[in-house]
């Protein structure tokens, strides 16, 4: 348990350092952007309102030296004040908190789906290396790797919503259906199928390729021969001995790529009108609402750090030799 506490302590320090760097980066972006920082913060919509701009100038001390301004800015952010969206007439923090659950559900499901299917398919391909099944999985992974995810999303809508009418294409629930309880959950689940599958597909391809390569490397090692020589069943050899060792690099990469998964949700939420952070980002881009955009950048960095810590924990569960504290 002490190891776990130390692990979280160390991770927390690192996380704070990274977040600090990101806040500084946000600050510099506002100042490096073309135009007066106050109008940049106000965004295109608020820039016309002289009173609001003056208020921002006052609030962030924009006439004082840059270092003082940075201090003020960090002070604001550390109290959860990520600015005010003039366009939406709401604090940025409130907007983010409102949209966060939808994005978390989407990205976490896609991540889980990609890991399970990717590792499964990769294993299947490696075990049957050189056969038709292996070839099919390899080609599938290659294609998924090269296809823009927003386009896959649109094509899936075309097939499953427009042509076949099986699944809803937009939103996260049927508007005005007034469903409750299990029916409501089922409705949400139905709306989730396409966005989760689309977002997960690309990463599934990545993990499948990695798993296959990783198993190829492990499969001829001595401990595998020993396991076979002991007369263990093939499935035990594959799952308990080969996969358990081959899976580690996959999980490392999965952790590193969590950030891209969150970036991908901007595209997916735009395509499927999923009411999360990504959709908010798209709206903020359209409205040039920079405060919201910078807030999203901040919150998505927090999400990446959390995802990374979770993958480290998974890592240590699979490989007990890894000492979290070190």
């Amino acid at each position: 348990m002490a190891g776990l506490a130390r692990f979280f302590g160390g991770r927390l320090i690192k996380a704070v350092a990274i977040l600090f760097a990101i806040v500084v980066m946000n600050f510099l972006l506002v100042h490096a952007a073309p135009g007066d920082p106050a109008t940049v913060m106000a965004g295109e919509a608020g820039a016309g309102d002289a009173q609001f701009v003056a208020q921002l100038r006052e609030q962030f001390g924009l006439d004082r030296p840059l270092v003082v301004q940075l201090g003020t800015y960090i002070g604001h952010v550390s109290t959860g004040d990520l600015g005010f969206s003039y366009r939406q007439q709401k604090p940025v923090w409130e907007l983010l908190v409102q949209r966060l659950p939808a994005t978390l559900v989407l990205t976490a499901s896609a991540f889980a789906l990609a890991l399970v299917l990717g590792i499964g398919l990769g294993t299947l391909a490696a075990v049957h290396a050189g056969t038709l099944r292996d070839g099919a999985i390899t080609v599938l992974a290659l294609l998924a790797y090269a296809t823009p995810i927003y386009w896959i999303g649109l094509m899936l809508i075309l097939l499953f919503s427009v042509r076949l009418g099986w699944l809803p294409a937009f939103g996260y629930e049927t508007v005005g259906a007034g469903l409750t309880g299990i029916a409501h959950l089922a409705d949400i689940a139905k709306h989730m199928v396409l966005p989760v599958a689309t977002l997960g597909l690309f990463y599934m391809a990545v993990y499948a390729r990695l798993t296959r390569a990783s198993i190829q490397e492990v499969r001829d090692m001595d401990f595998v021969k020993t396991a076979r020589a002991k007369g263990l069943r093939e499935s035990t050899v594959v799952f308990r001995h080969i996969l358990r060792n081959a899976i580690l690099p996959v999980i490392t990469v999965a952790g590193v790529q969590a950030g891209q998964l969150i970036g991908g949700s901007i595209l997916i939420e735009t395509v499927f009108a999923w009411p999360g952070i990504g959709r908010l980002a798209f709206e903020a881009v359209l409205q040039r609402d920079y405060q919201v955009l910078l807030g999203i950048f901040f919150i998505s960095s927090v999400m990446v750090i959390v995802f990374n810590i979770v993958t480290d924990l998974i890592y240590s569960l699979i490989d007990p030799r890894i000492d979290l504290a070190s």
């Binding site: 590193v256 950030g259 891209q260 998505s300 960095s301 999400m303 990446v304 990374n308």
Partner: peptide, 8 residues
Amino acid sequence: QTIPNFVL
């Protein structure tokens, strides 16, 4: 590498 690429 930690920063979400696409968001940036």
